[in-house]
Protein backbone atom coordinates (compact mmCIF):
# COMPACT_ATOMS: atom_id res chain seq x y z
CA UNK A 1 0.00 0.00 0.00
CA UNK A 2 1.38 3.38 -0.98
CA UNK A 3 1.00 6.28 1.40
CA UNK A 4 -2.10 8.28 0.59
CA UNK A 5 -4.02 11.23 1.91
CA UNK A 6 -7.65 11.07 2.90
CA UNK A 7 -10.48 13.53 2.98
CA UNK A 8 -14.18 13.49 3.60
CA UNK A 9 -16.12 15.27 0.93
CA UNK A 10 -18.66 17.83 2.09
CA UNK A 11 -20.91 17.46 -0.93
CA UNK A 12 -21.18 15.30 -4.02
CA UNK A 13 -20.13 18.24 -6.16
CA UNK A 14 -17.03 18.82 -4.11
CA UNK A 15 -16.25 15.12 -4.14
CA UNK A 16 -16.44 14.97 -7.92
CA UNK A 17 -14.35 18.09 -8.32
CA UNK A 18 -11.62 16.81 -6.02
CA UNK A 19 -11.67 13.39 -7.61
CA UNK A 20 -10.80 14.80 -11.00
CA UNK A 21 -7.27 15.47 -9.76
CA UNK A 22 -4.50 13.05 -10.55
CA UNK A 23 -4.31 9.98 -8.32
CA UNK A 24 -7.58 10.55 -6.48
CA UNK A 25 -10.11 7.79 -5.90
CA UNK A 26 -13.41 7.57 -4.12
CA UNK A 27 -13.70 5.20 -1.22
CA UNK A 28 -17.06 3.76 -0.24
CA UNK A 29 -17.18 0.33 1.44
CA UNK A 30 -13.57 -0.37 0.50
CA UNK A 31 -14.15 -4.11 0.24
CA UNK A 32 -12.40 -4.31 -3.11
CA UNK A 33 -10.29 -1.18 -3.22
CA UNK A 34 -8.41 -1.77 0.03
CA UNK A 35 -7.40 -5.29 -1.02
CA UNK A 36 -6.17 -3.93 -4.33
CA UNK A 37 -4.26 -1.16 -2.59
CA UNK A 38 -2.51 -3.63 -0.32
CA UNK A 39 -1.38 -5.51 -3.41
CA UNK A 40 -0.48 -2.23 -5.14
CA UNK A 41 -2.77 -3.04 -8.01
CA UNK A 42 -4.45 0.24 -7.14
CA UNK A 43 -2.14 3.03 -6.00
CA UNK A 44 -4.24 6.11 -5.34
CA UNK A 45 -2.48 9.03 -3.71
CA UNK A 46 -5.68 10.50 -2.33
CA UNK A 47 -8.89 8.90 -1.11
CA UNK A 48 -12.14 10.81 -1.00
CA UNK A 49 -14.60 9.32 1.43
CA UNK A 50 -18.10 9.57 0.05
CA UNK A 51 -19.84 7.68 2.83
CA UNK A 52 -21.38 10.68 4.53
CA UNK A 53 -23.11 12.50 1.73
CA UNK A 54 -26.64 11.28 2.28
CA UNK A 55 -26.37 8.83 -0.60
CA UNK A 56 -27.73 5.99 1.49
CA UNK A 57 -31.47 6.28 0.85
CA UNK A 58 -33.87 4.19 -1.16
CA UNK A 59 -36.75 6.27 -2.52
CA UNK A 60 -39.61 5.81 -4.96
CA UNK A 61 -39.38 7.82 -8.16
CA UNK A 62 -42.16 9.84 -9.78
CA UNK A 63 -42.15 7.35 -12.64
CA UNK A 64 -43.03 4.49 -10.32
CA UNK A 65 -39.48 3.16 -10.09
CA UNK A 66 -36.93 3.16 -7.34
CA UNK A 67 -33.92 5.34 -6.72
CA UNK A 68 -31.16 3.58 -4.80
CA UNK A 69 -28.48 5.75 -3.26
CA UNK A 70 -24.95 4.83 -4.28
CA UNK A 71 -23.96 4.26 -0.66
CA UNK A 72 -26.80 1.89 0.17
CA UNK A 73 -25.12 -1.22 1.54
CA UNK A 74 -25.67 -4.50 -0.25
CA UNK A 75 -27.20 -5.96 2.90
CA UNK A 76 -29.70 -3.12 3.24
CA UNK A 77 -30.61 -3.18 -0.43
CA UNK A 78 -31.18 -6.92 -0.41
CA UNK A 79 -33.41 -6.60 2.66
CA UNK A 80 -35.42 -3.60 1.46
CA UNK A 81 -39.14 -4.40 1.38
CA UNK A 82 -39.79 -2.74 -1.94
CA UNK A 83 -36.81 -4.43 -3.54
CA UNK A 84 -37.89 -7.78 -2.21
CA UNK A 85 -41.43 -7.30 -3.46
CA UNK A 86 -40.89 -5.57 -6.81
CA UNK A 87 -37.31 -6.35 -7.79
CA UNK A 88 -36.74 -9.70 -6.19
CA UNK A 89 -34.08 -10.68 -8.73
CA UNK A 90 -31.93 -7.87 -7.37
CA UNK A 91 -32.32 -9.04 -3.80
CA UNK A 92 -31.50 -12.60 -4.79
CA UNK A 93 -28.47 -11.59 -6.80
CA UNK A 94 -27.12 -9.55 -3.90
CA UNK A 95 -27.56 -12.40 -1.46
CA UNK A 96 -25.76 -14.76 -3.82
CA UNK A 97 -22.68 -12.56 -3.66
CA UNK A 98 -19.78 -12.36 -1.23
CA UNK A 99 -20.40 -12.99 2.47
CA UNK A 100 -22.59 -11.36 5.05
CA UNK A 101 -19.68 -9.36 6.41
CA UNK A 102 -18.72 -8.04 2.99
CA UNK A 103 -22.30 -7.21 2.08
CA UNK A 104 -22.58 -5.15 5.26
CA UNK A 105 -19.84 -2.88 3.95
CA UNK A 106 -20.12 -3.10 0.18
CA UNK A 107 -22.15 -0.37 -1.52
CA UNK A 108 -24.34 -0.17 -4.58
CA UNK A 109 -22.00 2.18 -6.40
CA UNK A 110 -18.89 0.30 -5.37
CA UNK A 111 -20.31 -3.04 -6.43
CA UNK A 112 -20.79 -1.70 -9.95
CA UNK A 113 -17.13 -0.73 -10.02
CA UNK A 114 -15.61 -3.87 -8.54
CA UNK A 115 -12.74 -5.21 -10.54
CA UNK A 116 -12.13 -8.59 -12.07
CA UNK A 117 -11.03 -11.67 -10.18
CA UNK A 118 -8.69 -12.87 -12.91
CA UNK A 119 -5.73 -14.37 -11.01
CA UNK A 120 -3.21 -12.80 -13.39
CA UNK A 121 -4.66 -9.38 -12.56
CA UNK A 122 -3.98 -10.15 -8.92
CA UNK A 123 -0.30 -11.14 -9.21
CA UNK A 124 1.69 -8.03 -10.09
CA UNK A 125 4.61 -10.08 -11.41
CA UNK A 126 2.42 -11.49 -14.16
CA UNK A 127 1.52 -9.83 -17.44
CA UNK A 128 -1.92 -8.23 -17.44
CA UNK A 129 -3.18 -5.62 -19.89
CA UNK A 130 -5.89 -4.55 -17.49
CA UNK A 131 -3.49 -3.85 -14.65
CA UNK A 132 -0.54 -2.73 -16.76
CA UNK A 133 -1.57 -1.79 -20.28
CA UNK A 134 0.67 -3.29 -22.92
CA UNK A 135 2.16 -5.98 -20.68
CA UNK A 136 0.21 -8.78 -22.35
CA UNK A 137 -2.38 -11.22 -21.06
CA UNK A 138 -1.25 -14.09 -18.86
CA UNK A 139 -4.67 -15.66 -18.78
CA UNK A 140 -5.52 -16.39 -22.40
CA UNK A 141 -3.04 -19.27 -22.53
CA UNK A 142 -2.98 -19.79 -18.80
CA UNK A 143 -5.48 -20.59 -16.08
CA UNK A 144 -8.66 -19.34 -17.69
CA UNK A 145 -11.25 -21.71 -16.28
CA UNK A 146 -13.10 -18.98 -14.39
CA UNK A 147 -12.79 -16.29 -17.04
CA UNK A 148 -15.08 -14.78 -19.63
CA UNK A 149 -16.20 -16.29 -22.91
CA UNK A 150 -18.23 -13.34 -24.19
CA UNK A 151 -17.18 -9.80 -25.01
CA UNK A 152 -13.51 -10.65 -24.61
CA UNK A 153 -10.66 -9.46 -26.78
CA UNK A 154 -7.16 -10.58 -27.65
CA UNK A 155 -5.99 -8.23 -24.93
CA UNK A 156 -8.18 -9.47 -22.08
CA UNK A 157 -10.56 -12.27 -21.14
CA UNK A 158 -11.30 -11.10 -17.60
CA UNK A 159 -14.81 -11.74 -16.35
CA UNK A 160 -16.97 -9.19 -14.59
CA UNK A 161 -17.42 -10.60 -11.08
CA UNK A 162 -20.55 -8.83 -9.86
CA UNK A 163 -23.85 -10.54 -9.15
CA UNK A 164 -25.69 -7.31 -8.37
CA UNK A 165 -24.75 -5.76 -11.69
CA UNK A 166 -26.24 -8.72 -13.55
CA UNK A 167 -29.58 -8.08 -11.93
CA UNK A 168 -29.33 -4.34 -12.59
CA UNK A 169 -28.59 -5.10 -16.23
CA UNK A 170 -31.67 -7.27 -16.34
CA UNK A 171 -33.78 -4.52 -14.81
CA UNK A 172 -32.54 -1.81 -17.21
CA UNK A 173 -31.22 0.33 -14.39
CA UNK A 174 -29.81 3.79 -14.94
CA UNK A 175 -26.58 4.84 -13.28
CA UNK A 176 -26.86 8.42 -12.07
CA UNK A 177 -23.66 10.40 -11.77
CA UNK A 178 -22.39 13.85 -11.04
CA UNK A 179 -19.38 15.11 -12.95
CA UNK A 180 -16.37 17.18 -11.96
CA UNK A 181 -18.11 20.22 -13.40
CA UNK A 182 -21.17 19.56 -11.27
CA UNK A 183 -23.20 18.34 -14.23
CA UNK A 184 -25.52 15.42 -13.75
CA UNK A 185 -26.34 12.62 -16.13
CA UNK A 186 -27.80 9.14 -16.22
CA UNK A 187 -26.07 6.33 -17.99
CA UNK A 188 -28.06 3.26 -19.05
CA UNK A 189 -26.55 0.20 -17.39
CA UNK A 190 -26.08 -1.35 -20.82
CA UNK A 191 -23.63 1.42 -21.67
CA UNK A 192 -22.05 1.70 -18.25
CA UNK A 193 -19.59 -1.20 -18.41
CA UNK A 194 -17.23 -1.24 -21.37
CA UNK A 195 -15.85 -4.20 -23.25
CA UNK A 196 -12.09 -4.60 -23.04
CA UNK A 197 -11.18 -4.21 -26.71
CA UNK A 198 -7.66 -2.89 -26.79
CA UNK A 199 -8.15 -0.87 -23.61
CA UNK A 200 -9.12 -3.38 -20.89
CA UNK A 201 -7.95 -0.97 -18.20
CA UNK A 202 -10.89 1.30 -19.05
CA UNK A 203 -13.82 -0.51 -17.53
CA UNK A 204 -16.73 1.92 -17.45
CA UNK A 205 -18.17 5.07 -18.94
CA UNK A 206 -17.45 7.33 -15.98
CA UNK A 207 -15.32 10.37 -16.74
CA UNK A 208 -12.48 11.41 -14.44
CA UNK A 209 -13.96 12.60 -11.17
CA UNK A 210 -17.48 11.46 -12.01
CA UNK A 211 -19.25 10.07 -8.96
CA UNK A 212 -22.12 7.60 -8.95
CA UNK A 213 -24.82 9.10 -6.78
CA UNK A 214 -27.61 6.61 -7.30
CA UNK A 215 -28.96 3.80 -9.38
CA UNK A 216 -32.50 4.21 -10.67
CA UNK A 217 -34.76 1.32 -11.47
CA UNK A 218 -37.70 1.71 -13.82
CA UNK A 219 -41.13 0.69 -12.65
CA UNK A 220 -41.47 -2.95 -11.66
CA UNK A 221 -41.68 -5.61 -14.33
CA UNK A 222 -43.82 -8.06 -12.43
CA UNK A 223 -43.33 -11.68 -13.38
CA UNK A 224 -41.27 -14.31 -11.64
CA UNK A 225 -37.82 -13.24 -10.59
CA UNK A 226 -34.98 -15.74 -10.45
CA UNK A 227 -31.28 -15.53 -9.83
CA UNK A 228 -29.38 -18.76 -10.21
CA UNK A 229 -25.68 -18.80 -9.47
CA UNK A 230 -23.61 -21.88 -10.25
CA UNK A 231 -20.21 -22.06 -8.60
CA UNK A 232 -17.58 -24.44 -7.30
CA UNK A 233 -18.84 -24.36 -3.73
CA UNK A 234 -22.13 -23.63 -2.10
CA UNK A 235 -21.37 -20.12 -0.93
CA UNK A 236 -18.77 -17.38 -1.01
CA UNK A 237 -17.41 -18.04 -4.48
CA UNK A 238 -17.66 -16.17 -7.74
CA UNK A 239 -20.01 -17.46 -10.37
CA UNK A 240 -18.92 -19.91 -13.01
CA UNK A 241 -22.22 -19.03 -14.59
CA UNK A 242 -25.10 -17.03 -13.19
CA UNK A 243 -28.44 -16.30 -14.78
CA UNK A 244 -30.80 -13.53 -13.76
CA UNK A 245 -34.23 -13.96 -15.24
CA UNK A 246 -37.68 -12.46 -15.12
CA UNK A 247 -40.31 -14.78 -16.52
CA UNK A 248 -43.36 -12.78 -17.60
CA UNK A 249 -46.92 -14.07 -17.49
CA UNK A 250 -47.25 -13.26 -21.17
CA UNK A 251 -44.45 -15.66 -22.12
CA UNK A 252 -42.08 -12.80 -22.60
CA UNK A 253 -39.01 -13.10 -20.46
CA UNK A 254 -35.64 -11.53 -20.13
CA UNK A 255 -32.25 -12.86 -19.15
CA UNK A 256 -28.92 -11.52 -18.03
CA UNK A 257 -25.79 -13.51 -17.34
CA UNK A 258 -22.85 -13.34 -14.97
CA UNK A 259 -19.55 -15.21 -14.90
CA UNK A 260 -19.39 -15.56 -18.67
CA UNK A 261 -19.04 -12.00 -19.88
CA UNK A 262 -16.44 -9.28 -19.82
CA UNK A 263 -19.39 -7.25 -18.56
CA UNK A 264 -22.81 -8.22 -17.22
CA UNK A 265 -24.21 -9.94 -20.29
CA UNK A 266 -27.56 -9.46 -21.92
CA UNK A 267 -28.70 -9.66 -25.53
CA UNK A 268 -31.96 -8.77 -27.23
CA UNK A 269 -31.74 -11.99 -29.18
CA UNK A 270 -31.71 -14.08 -26.02
CA UNK A 271 -34.75 -12.27 -24.66
CA UNK A 272 -36.52 -12.70 -27.97
CA UNK A 273 -35.81 -16.43 -27.93
CA UNK A 274 -37.52 -16.87 -24.57
CA UNK A 275 -40.72 -18.44 -25.93
CA UNK A 276 -38.64 -21.04 -27.79
CA UNK A 277 -37.13 -22.44 -24.62
CA UNK A 278 -33.88 -22.74 -22.77
CA UNK A 279 -31.79 -24.10 -25.62
CA UNK A 280 -32.79 -21.27 -27.91
CA UNK A 281 -32.07 -18.68 -25.26
CA UNK A 282 -28.67 -20.21 -24.62
CA UNK A 283 -27.81 -20.29 -28.28
CA UNK A 284 -28.76 -16.67 -28.71
CA UNK A 285 -27.00 -15.52 -25.58
CA UNK A 286 -23.81 -17.39 -26.40
CA UNK A 287 -23.58 -16.15 -29.95
CA UNK A 288 -20.06 -14.95 -30.60
CA UNK A 289 -18.57 -16.77 -27.59
CA UNK A 290 -14.81 -17.14 -27.68
CA UNK A 291 -13.99 -19.73 -25.06
CA UNK A 292 -10.62 -21.18 -24.18
CA UNK A 293 -10.14 -24.91 -23.79
CA UNK A 294 -10.44 -24.44 -20.03
CA UNK A 295 -13.65 -22.43 -19.96
CA UNK A 296 -15.51 -23.87 -22.93
CA UNK A 297 -17.67 -25.76 -20.43
CA UNK A 298 -19.33 -22.49 -19.51
CA UNK A 299 -21.31 -22.68 -22.74
CA UNK A 300 -22.82 -26.00 -21.81
CA UNK A 301 -23.23 -24.89 -18.23
CA UNK A 302 -25.09 -21.76 -19.34
CA UNK A 303 -27.47 -23.89 -21.36
CA UNK A 304 -27.92 -26.31 -18.47
CA UNK A 305 -28.56 -23.49 -16.02
CA UNK A 306 -31.20 -22.05 -18.29
CA UNK A 307 -32.72 -25.50 -18.66
CA UNK A 308 -32.87 -25.74 -14.89
CA UNK A 309 -34.66 -22.38 -14.66
CA UNK A 310 -37.18 -23.38 -17.28
CA UNK A 311 -37.74 -26.69 -15.55
CA UNK A 312 -38.38 -25.02 -12.20
CA UNK A 313 -40.58 -22.41 -13.78
CA UNK A 314 -42.74 -25.20 -15.13
CA UNK A 315 -42.81 -27.01 -11.84
Amino acid sequence: MRPFTYSRAASVEEAAKTAATQGARFIAGGTNLLDLMKLQIETPTHLIDVNHLGLDRIEPTAEGGLKIGAMVRNTDLAADKTVRRDYAVLSRALLAGASGQLRNKATTGGNLLQRTRCPYFYDTRMPCNKRQPGSGCGAIKGMSRSLAILGTSDACIAQHPSDMAVALRLLDAQVDAVGADGGRRSIPIADFHLLPGETPHIENALKPGELITSVTLPKPLGGTHVYRKVRDRASYAFALVSVAAVFGKDGRSRFAFGGIGAKPWRTDAADAAAPSGAAAVAEAALSGARPTAQNAFKQQLTARTLASLYRQKGA
Binding site: D232, A234, S235
Partner: peptide, 16 residues
Protein backbone atom coordinates in the same frame (compact mmCIF):
# COMPACT_ATOMS: atom_id res chain seq x y z
CA UNK B 1 0.47 -21.93 -8.59
CA UNK B 2 -1.84 -19.35 -10.07
CA UNK B 3 -4.72 -19.36 -7.60
CA UNK B 4 -2.60 -18.42 -4.63
CA UNK B 5 -5.14 -16.77 -2.37
CA UNK B 6 -8.24 -17.80 -0.49
CA UNK B 7 -10.55 -16.21 -3.04
CA UNK B 8 -9.34 -18.58 -5.74
CA UNK B 9 -8.09 -21.62 -3.79
CA UNK B 10 -11.40 -22.92 -2.59
CA UNK B 11 -11.89 -24.91 0.58
CA UNK B 12 -15.32 -25.90 1.90
CA UNK B 13 -17.40 -23.24 3.61
CA UNK B 14 -20.13 -23.94 6.13
CA UNK B 15 -22.76 -24.16 3.43
CA UNK B 16 -20.87 -27.07 1.85
Amino acid sequence: FVNHDMAEYLVPVHAD
